[in-house]
Amino acid sequence: MCGIAGFLDKTRRGSAGATLLKMLTALGCRGPDSAGVAIYGSGAGDVLKLRIKLGERGAFEEKGRKVAEQLRECGMIKESSVTGAYLHALLEPRVSARDVERFIESLAPGLEVVSLGRRLEIVKQVGSPQDLEAAYGISRFRGTHGIGHTRLCTESRVDLSHSQPFWAHGAPDLATAHNGHITNYHTLRRRYEQHGVRFYTENDSEVIGVYLADQCSKGMALEEAMKASLKDLDGSFSYVVATADALGFVKDPFALKPLIVAENDAFVAIATEEIAIRAAFGSEADAREAQARELKLWRA
């Protein structure tokens, strides 16, 4: 099971948060374990937005304040705030994403950079989309596009880190959400780990972002990397992918997992079930099931 959703607002009204909440609420029954969104808001030049996981559940103000202080001492931080399990910070990008991440993780145990990018912000946690809204008010997140996920855990742990969407660590603004099962996950993971890539979870879906980031770092355009993933990823998958300026989807060669696409002049909506599209947009835009091996990337 699992539910995935993608939304691109062509009118640029910035309603990504509210729309994704409606879509995910409709998909809630497909994934009662956890819910999350990756939303692309407005950026401010090169300033990087960070969302750092302080702990699994609950309030972590004290810990968050200490981490923010340490970042401030290094002269990296511009602004910070703590909400729930997250420290939200704006950073001057003087070093690479990987170095920022390594530095932050060295500050205290249990810290994890959940998202990093000029526009990307990921918020996810154990619980329903309504719980996510109650904790973080995701409907108020402004953005031109975004992706979301409701998780029915089949193998790995149920916690914040294992929830989706996943940020592709090291690649600013690249996020993925997946429904299905990557059966060559362990082979791929071993290969990446031999090259020094760190995996943050035991969730097979994490490898999709790692794969796309790796292909892009070797010079592939995102769309080419998505095409190559049809060959290199095994198993059942429908996944959505987003960057600072694009939203796309890929469906596996056997069409084993559902994925509905609806597009008109105002928006692009992608969802595991049409129920999400009707919940967010009423009768607007015809829906169609994506075909096997189909992929598409829209510019935001």
Partner: peptide, 26 residues
């Protein structure tokens, strides 16, 4: 009148299924 998802009309034994749009896999 629109499109149909995967496995439309799977294993039907009689009657007719008319899809005026596209049908997905199987």
């Amino acid at each position: 009148h629109g499109n149909a998802g995967n496995a439309a009309a799977a294993a039907i034994r009689g009657g007719s299924v008319i899809i005026h749009g596209d049908a997905a896999a199987r």
